[in-house]
């Protein structure tokens, strides 16, 4: 029981980071109709900026600054390259973002080198706390708390503020929004900024002990894909819920499924979500919360 509780908390903490990643993918997809494969590199850019900025700024300010810088870069990418892709086939945007990701990765390697870095934390990086009988890392609890706070804030922003209304309207129909006087360009830029900033926060928490920051951190975003697909690309809430489930599934299957599979079980938890996703999509091809599409010819 103790082990289950312990694993559940670390699973939820992992799921929290996945949720931030999934959120970024999902808002960008809703706004720009493209799947940003460069998202993972924004994640590792945020983490690297944090390791550099923490030397000159207090920890919380460094967090804020790296989130803002990463968000700014995301907005810049949208404005300079990806906005030209409006109306082009899905295929084109997939390739373009894949290659932008490769370029970003190279830029990160040039700027920060290939060394593995530890993510600095204001608390003892290996500090543990007791929850009931279980011992969990303080970092896990903080990342769970911080992510929940960010998610609640964003939900309030989208549901309760004029900006949120503009965002929802722009993702519904850009033409109608423009006709109604909503500055769609600026709304798009803000959406991308949000995606970049949340990616940076996710990267910072993912870089903490027991993991570390290196140029391969961006690959973590690939592991969040099953959550986005199962949650349904259209639904931000669905993606976030599925991301928490994904974190749990990954940690629990590592502990309870891997040992039963013998040699095949080695690292099986890393691909298990993908296998689950493929089987799931056979039953529901548009995800859990995805809407059924009605098309005209």
């Amino acid at each position: 029981m103790t082990q289950l509780l312990q694993l559940s908390i670390s699973g939820l903490a992992l799921g929290a980071s996945y949720a931030l990643i999934a959120l970024g993918f999902s808002v960008v997809f809703r706004a720009s109709r493209l799947f940003n494969f460069a998202h993972g590199e924004l994640l590792s850019l945020g983490a690297f900026l944090m390791t550099a900025l923490v030397d000159v700024l207090p920890w919380w300010l460094a967090l804020l600054a790296s989130a803002c810088l990463t968000g700014g870069l995301a907005a810049l990418l949208e404005r300079t390259v990806l906005r030209r892709m409006v109306g082009r086939p899905v295929f084109t945007t997939i390739i373009l973002t894949l290659f932008l990701g490769l370029l970003l990765r190279a830029a990160i390697v040039i700027a920060f080198g290939t060394d593995t870095r530890g993510m600095p934390t204001p608390w003892e990086s290996m500090a543990e706390v007791q929850v009931g009988n279980a011992t969990v890392l303080l970092s896990s609890l903080v990342s769970l708390g911080a992510t929940t706070a960010v998610l609640v804030l964003l939900h309030a922003l989208v549901q309760r503020t004029p900006l949120g209304v503009a965002m929802r309207a722009a993702s519904e129909s850009q033409e109608v929004s423009l006709a109604l006087g909503i500055p769609v360009g600026r709304v798009l830029a803000f959406t991308w900024f949000l995606a970049g900033a949340t990616a940076a926060v996710a990267g910072i928490f993912l870089g903490m002990f027991p993991r570390s920051v290196d140029s391969n951190l961006g690959y973590v975003a690939l592991r969040a894909f099953p959550a986005i697909i199962v949650g349904g690309l259209e639904s931000v809430v669905g993606a976030v819920v599925a991301a928490f489930m994904l974190g749990l599934l990954e940690v629990l299957s590592q502990a309870y499924v891997n040992p039963h599979l013998g040699a095949f079980g080695h690292n099986f938890h890393a691909v298990f979500p993908y296998a689950a996703m493929i089987l799931f999509l056979v039953v529901r091809p548009r995800g859990l919360w995805g809407e059924h599409e009605v098309r005209r010819v």
Binding site: F35, V90, I94, L222, F225, P226, I228, I229, L233, V271, Y274, A275, M277, I278, L281, P285, R286, G287
Partner: peptide, 9 residues
């Protein structure tokens, strides 16, 4: 996109 992700898997 759904197909792209499944084939990535």
């Amino acid at each position: 996109l759904y197909l792209a992700i499944v084939t990535l898997g």
